[in-house]
C-alpha cells in the first residue's frame, strides 16, 4: 500500500512537470499569437484587448496556473485556426485514436503471448533460428512502410478494403474497427516481434534456474514446469515491456493515421503543427504524455501485484 501511494505521488509529480514543460515550450516561441489572430489590420487597442482576453498580459506563472486550472476541467483554450474550443476539436478525435490503439494493443497481446510461449514449449533449434530471422526482419520494417504495402496489396490489388473510406466509430462502430484492422496491424507488427523476443529471452533465462530443475525432478513435464512455474516469473518483464509498447502505440498511430487517412489525433496534430495552431498542439502533447505516464505507472503497480519481491525495493 505504501508502495502504491509513493508510486502515485511520483506519477503526479511527473505529470505536473510534463504539463509545465509542455506549457513552457509554447511560451518561448518567438512571435505573438495576437498578430496572427488579428491579421494585418490590427490596431494597438485591439491587440491590447485581445492580449487581455487571452490573458497574455499576466505574468508567466499566473498564466500557467490559469491554464492548468482550465486543463483539469478539460478546457484547453480556443484553437487559433478553427473557431472552436480545443476540447470540442479533440473530443471527436480521441475516440478514433483510442480505438486504433486498443485494436493494435489487442493484436500485440493476442499474437505475441501465445507465439512466444509456444516457441518456448519445446527445444527446437531449427524453428528457433527461423523465428529469430523472421523476428529480426519484422523489427526492421518501419510501420509506415508496412502500412503502405498493406494498402497496395490488400487495398488496391485484392480490394479487401478501400483506402480512405474510414467511417467514424460513432457512426458505425464495427465498420470503423474493421477499417482500423490493417493500420493497427501495421503498428503492432514490430512490437509483436519485440514482445516475442523479449518473452523468449526471459523464459530462457528462467529455465536455467534451480527451481525449474526441482520442478522437473518432481516429475513435471516441460509444459507443466513452464505453465506452473516459469511463466509466472517470466511474465513480469513482459508486462513492463507491453506497457512501454502501449505507451509507444500512440506515437506510432500519429504516423499510421497519415498512411491510411484516419482522421484521429495524429492527423489533427500534424495539421495543427503545419498551421502553427499551438493551443491544439499543446493539448494533444499533454494528453499523450499523460497517457504514457498513466500506462507506465499502472504497469508498475500491476507488476508489483504479480511479483511480491518487487514491493521490497
Amino acid at each position: 500500500m505504501r508502495y502504491a501511494a509513493k508510486k502515485l505521488a511520483m506519477m503526479l509529480l511527473t505529470m505536473v512537470i510534463v504539463s509545465f514543460l509542455a506549457f513552457l515550450a509554447f511560451q518561448i516561441i518567438p512571435g505573438d499569437p495576437t498578430a496572427r489572430l488579428l491579421g494585418a489590420d490590427a490596431t494597438t487597442e485591439s491587440v491590447a484587448a485581445l492580449r487581455a482576453e487571452l490573458g497574455l498580459d499576466r505574468p508567466f506563472f499566473a498564466r500557467y496556473g490559469a491554464w492548468m486550472q482550465g486543463a483539469l476541467r478539460g478546457d484547453f483554450g480556443r484553437s487559433y485556426s478553427y473557431a472552436m474550443p480545443v476540447s470540442e476539436l479533440l473530443a471527436g478525435k480521441i475516440g478514433i485514436t483510442a480505438l486504433l490503439t486498443a485494436v493494435s494493443f489487442l493484436l500485440i497481446v493476442l499474437v505475441s503471448l501465445p507465439t512466444g510461449v509456444l516457441l518456448c514449449a519445446r527445444e527446437r533449434p531449427g524453428l528457433d533460428r527461423a523465428a529469430n530471422a523472421v523476428n529480426q526482419i519484422i523489427m526492421a520494417v518501419p510501420p509506415f512502410f508496412t502500412g503502405i504495402l498493406m494498402t497496395l496489396v490488400f487495398g488496391l490489388m485484392l480490394r479487401w478494403f478501400v483506402p480512405g473510406s474510414f467511417v467514424s466509430p460513432s457512426e458505425d462502430f464495427w465498420r470503423s474497427t474493421a477499417y482500423l484492422f490493417f493500420p493497427a496491424l501495421a503498428i503492432a507488427l514490430p512490437r509483436i516481434a519485440m514482445t516475442v523476443k523479449m518473452l523468449r529471452a526471459s523464459v530462457r533465462g528462467e529455465l536455467d534456474k534451480d527451481y525449474v530443475r526441482t520442478a522437473y525432478s518432481r516429475g513435471n513435464s516441460r509444459w507443466q514446469a513452464l505453465y506452473r512455474h516459469v511463466l509466472r516469473n517470466a511474465v513480469v518483464p513482459t508486462v513492463a515491456f507491453l506497457a512501454m509498447a502501449a505507451a509507444d502505440l500512440v506515437a506510432g498511430s500519429v504516423v499510421i493515421e497519415q498512411v491510411f487517412s484516419v482522421p484521429g489525433l495524429g492527423r489533427l496534430l500534424l495539421t495543427s503543427i503545419a498551421n502553427r495552431d499551438y493551443p491544439v498542439v499543446q493539448a494533444i502533447v499533454v494528453i499523450l504524455a499523460l497517457w504514457v505516464v498513466l500506462v507506465n505507472g499502472g504497469a508498475d503497480l500491476l507488476n508489483q501485484r504479480l511479483d511480491p519481491r518487487l514491493r521490497l525495493s
Partner: peptide, 17 residues
Amino acid sequence: ALTAFPSILLALVFIAL
C-alpha cells in the same frame, strides 16, 4: 517527464517551434 513524451512526438513539437 521527458521520457513521457514519445520521442517522435517530442521531435515534432521541436520542429513546430
